[in-house]
Design a protein around this nucleic acid. Structure first.
Length: 937
RNA sequence: GCGGGGGUGCUGGAGUGGUCAAACAGGCAAGGUUGAGGGCCUUGUGGCUUAGUGCCUGCGCGGGUUCGAACCCCGUCCCUCGCACCA
């Protein structure tokens, strides 16, 4: 760690540089990032989002705003509690995990108390964030859950009000569940089916003569209109059960599932599959009576273990019927079957399943791979492009994709079907048992599906700036598809639901409007507010401006304090930028917007969200299995805060993942070190009149300032850094190589440079500013402005022109393998050529490239006759040859004249500069505007 | 399956209709330099071309639009991330 970093951090702290309080008449900038979950020590990935927010905070501070950049800690949820319980139980694995993470062995036993564990890790994070030199207002820090009585009161209030608004309700929701473990099986807890999702099927209630229900589950309820028969696996023993007071026949597995999914079930007996074959059932939708046939493809673990057959649209059904034709005993019954075509879709006439089976050359129902493929072709085609025909009752003429949900509801209402949940693929729990979907009942939900709320949220989103803009679609989609969210659990740390204390509010639900609490936390931490003061009325007053009489007395503080806090809220709100990792887009960041629009008037709705990628290390994803996490402590120790910041900012922006490379960090250390030494050239330099290179450097600086600012305005850290650091650096090197150092120019350069680097390498900036002899903190100076008097496009063109010439001469020299040049003649195009080029440029600008020659020759340059036409032809052939900037022969001659010495020195020969009209050389004709002819002798 | 983001040198990645393919960073190679603590600077890094400042090839693959396409359109292949109780 660079020695000077700690020095500046202490100075900032002492001078209270980052403490933000309202200043009347001054603009503010309120930026936050999600408080991190602190169940381990921080690694470099954790710091990136915080650093990006810090960059924006510092930039805005330099712009003269009061910047509030606070920081807190999230303890809500299962992991902390889980780890504490494991330590309590003497779990050695957990012990070793902590030991490996660098926790002193003697402390680990105390982690049986989650509060002790949390406070240990909070200290770790706090320490390292300080070492990173964060521009945080640390007076406002806090942590979550009931362990913090004050924050607990805040969340309690939030949920009471959410309930008042009727945005919290009870309901049920499906989860993948292991019957043996008696708990949800999260994707990390699975041996098989890690990517499985929950899919909803509809069971169609077919009935036997005695009223017994044979529920056939399907993803395609619309095909019920064309059922020709039922399928039962003859090898399977089914169960008879009482389901919601009816007699049902389903597979054993389905019986369990139904029990888990809210059906009232009771086992009655068994039925062998074979006993059902040949019997008939009635289709509730059409009233048809159909036979039950045997089929081997029917799996008992799949849905109900009973399948309806729609051979016109389902390849499996068609092939199973074909297979049956080999068996005599079904002949008569098979003869009665008529395929019913239900859905018209492009590319298929009648019976698409039959057609696809032929195309794929499928010969039996054993041909599973081909059948799966055929099924998906038919299904996809019909779902996306299909239209139901006259055989589909009241749904005739409707598109499948658009009316599916309506159809399901209609069937349910008629009592023809009911829902069952399935996993999209088999899921096996870590304990090796098969899982199924369970419906959790009586769960508390936040109703993010509420249409009016959703609409308001989308409105807010449309007014927000999203960085990068590419992420907007993702947000829109996430909000549009947002369902109600279970907001409480039975275990873990957190705040209890105020009206049902058995439930703990879960982490994604207690973290939505807490940014407002940063205002309050300052007064809690200073001791001006106590837990007892934080009654609901207090929050109503300061956050919602509900001014009831006598409130100060009931809250127990002076009214002036209440008003002060309210004023502070009004000053800092809304959140100007929420900066976060992209992984939080589909939930947390959406919830953040949702809850803000629910609680606050439009003027306090969030202004922008900035999202970023996840840090990789040396090109690889950081993961537990690779063990390549880079602890923040190690990185800061080795490279210091600034080089770490730069190495992170330099590799990616937007949604891309930044890659931390040690070499990159080292290279920044070296470059910063060299630049700090470079300041010494100031002593060697003298003030003098501005020459071309001076003007050039001054002009470049303006360009860099403008670009850095505009990239930062779009939160584009990488491009901003490229301009502010790499760009400025290479300009400086180029300038220093001309060896004509102008003290005033260099002073100006470094002064701008120091300020430009504040958002990226703040300690380096301070050190550089100090070396320049400044007596004030660079953090208290201002962001550099573009100085109009130094803006000089032409000088940049001139220098580029000269550089290009040198490159051309070198390349020719190399080409003709001429080691020593005796004479270099540079022939500049005369002005009639420039006029033609200008005409050509304008023609292209006007979009008249096609008629370029005509355009050119219709202008005043036609007086140059054939010569002009010839040049126009050259340009008409290739628009790329038309120069974008045309200096004119006078200026071309001037810049060449001024740099004659340099050219002579570089090539070690005499240099002649002349105009083509006045040159005697044959090659003179070839001189083009901005592309002089070169003659080597 | 649904939804998001992508396919460009040796690498990470710029560039979304002409000025300009490869900015910037990193490799590698050559040269220079008292720098000797992972050094700094310059030049080169697709092919062809010996008067030439040009030509050809090239931006996942196949078509198309255009005077002109990495960029726009159609098709196609591939990679990657998220899909809810995991923070």
């Amino acid at each position: 760690m660079k020695l000077y970093e700690r020095k500046w951090q202490l100075i900032w702290e002492k001078e209270k540089v980052f403490e933000a309080d309202p200043v009347k008449g001054k603009k503010k900038f309120f930026i936050t990032f999600p408080y991190p979950y602190v169940n381990c020590s921080p690694h470099i990935g954790h710091s990136y989002t915080a650093l990006r927010a810090d960059m924006m905070a510092r930039y805005n501070k330099m712009m003269g705003k009061v910047v509030l950049y606070p920081q807190a800690w999230h303890l809500t949820g299962e992991p902390l509690m889980g780890a504490a319980k494991r330590i309590m139980a003497g779990d050695d694995k957990q012990f070793q995990t902590f030991k490996k993470a660098g926790v002193p062995e003697r402390i680990i036993p105390s982690f049986k108390d989650p509060k002790k564990m949390a406070s240990y890790f909070i200290k770790e994070w706090d320490k390292h964030f300080h070492k990173l030199g964060m521009s945080t207002d640390w007076r406002r820090t806090f942590f979550t859950t009931r362990l913090n009585k004050c924050y607990n009161r805040f969340v309690t209030w939030q949920f009471l009000r959410l309930k008042d608004k009727k945005l919290v309700g009870k309901g049920s929701h499906p989860i993948i569940y292991c019957p043996l473990c008696d708990s949800p099986t999260g994707s990390h807890d699975r041996l098989k089916g890690e990517n499985a999702t929950i899919v909803e099927h509809l069971m169609i209630h077919f009935r036997m003569n005695d009223g017994t229900v044979l529920p056939a589950a399907t993803l395609r309820p619309e095909t019920t209109y064309g059922v020709t028969n039922m399928w039962i696996n003859p090898e399977v023993v089914y169960v008879k059960a009482k389901v919601n007071d009816e007699e049902w026949i389903v597979s054993e597995q389905a019986f369990q599932k139904l029990g888990s999914q809210g059906y009232d079930v009771e086992l009655v007996g068994e039925v062998k599959g074979t006993e059902l074959i040949g019997k008939t059932v009635d289709n509730p939708v059409t009233g048809d009576s159909v036979y039950i046939f045997p089929a081997s493809f029917v799996k008992p673990e799949n849905s109900t273990g009973i399948v309806m057959s729609v051979p016109s649209h389902a390849p499996y059904d068609h092939m199973a019927l074909e297979d049956l034709k080999h068996e005599r005993r079904f002949k008569k019954k098979l003869d009665s079957i008529v395929y019913v075509h239900l859905i018209d879709s492009p590319g298929f006439d009648e019976h698409p399943a039959v057609r696809v089976c032929e195309m794929k050359g499928i010969i039996s129902q054993q041909d599973v791979k081909k059948l799966e493929n055929a099924t998906s072709i038919v299904y996809r085609n019909e779902f996306h492009k299909g239209e139901m025909n006259k055989n589909c009752g009241s749904f005739a003429g409707k598109k499948v994709s658009e009316s599916k949900e309506g159809l399901i509801k209609y069937f349910e209402k008629k009592g023809w079907g009911s829902r069952i949940y399935e996993t999209s693929e088999p899921v096996v729990c870590r304990c090796t048992s098969q899982t199924h979907v369970k419906l959790l009942k009586n769960q508390w939900f936040i109703k993010y599906s509420n249409k009016a709320w959703k609409k308001k949220t989308l409105k807010c989103l449309s007014k927000m700036r999203i960085y990068p803009e590419e992420a907007r679609k993702w947000f829109e989609n996430a909000i549009k598809n947002m369902n109600a969210k279970a907001c409480a659990r039975k275990s873990g740390l957190g705040t209890p639901l105020p009206w049902d204390e058995n439930w703990i509010i879960e982490p994604l639900s207690d973290s939505t409007i807490y940014m407002a609490y940063y205002v309050i936390a300052k007064y809690v931490n200073s001791g001006e507010l106590k837990e007892n003061n934080l009654v609901p009325e207090f929050f109503d007053y300061v956050l919602l401006n509900r001014k009831k009489k006598g409130v100060a007395k009931r809250v127990g503080v002076k009214k002036s304090l209440l008003d002060k806090i309210r004023k502070e809220f009004e000053y800092f709100y809304p959140v100007d930028m929420r900066s976060s990792g992209k992984d939080l887009v589909p939930h947390h960041l959406c919830f953040f917007v949702y809850n803000h629009v629910a609680f606050f008037p439009e003027k306090y709705w969030p202004k922008s969200i900035s999202v970023n990628g996840w840090v990789t290390s040396e090109g690889e994803k950081m993961s537990k299995s690779l063990g390549n996490f880079l602890p923040l402590s190690v990185v800061i120790e080795e490279f210091g805060a600034d080089a770490t910041r730069l190495a992170l900012f330099d590799t990616a922006e937007g949604l891309d993942d930044p890659d931390f490379r040690k070499d990159n960090a080292i290279s920044f250390i070296k470059k910063m070190g060299r630049l700090l030494e470079e300041v010494a050239v100031l002593k060697k330099s003298k003030a003098s009149k501005l020459d071309d290179m001076d003007k050039w450097l001054l002009a470049r600086v303006q360009d860099r300032v403008e670009k850095t600012s505009s990239f930062l305005d779009s939160a584009l850290n990488r491009q901003a850094l490229q301009e502010a650091f790499h760009g400025m650096n290479s300009d400086l090197i180029k300038y220093l190589n001309t060896k004509k150092l102008n003290k005033k120019v260099l002073e100006y350069f470094f002064n701008v440079f120091a300020r430009l680097m504040v958002p990226f390498a703040p300690h380096f900036s301070e050190e550089l500013y100090l070396k320049l002899g400044k007596k004030v903190l660079v953090h208290n100076s201002s962001w550099p402005k573009v100085e109009k008097k130094f803006v000089n496009k032409e000088i940049q063109v001139l220098v580029d022109y000269k550089d290009a010439l040198m490159v051309d001469v070198k390349s020719i020299q190399r080409l003709i393998k001429k080691d020593a040049i005796d004479l270099l003649t540079v022939v500049v195009a005369s002005d009639w050529k420039n006029e033609v080029a200008e005409c050509a440029r304008k023609a292209v600008e006007k979009g008249k490239f096609r008629a370029l020659i005509k355009e050119v020759m219709n202008s005043k340059v036609k007086r140059y006759g054939k010569r002009a036409a010839q040049l126009a032809q050259v340009y008409a052939k290739d628009a790329n040859k038309i120069p974008s900037v045309i200096l004119g022969s006078k200026k071309e001659l001037r810049i060449l004249g001024q740099n004659k010495n340099e050219l002579e020195k570089l090539f070690g020969c005499k240099v002649i500069v002349e105009l083509d009209d006045e040159s005697g050389s044959e090659k003179a004709v070839k001189a083009l505007p901005m592309k002089p002819s070169i003659i080597l002798e």
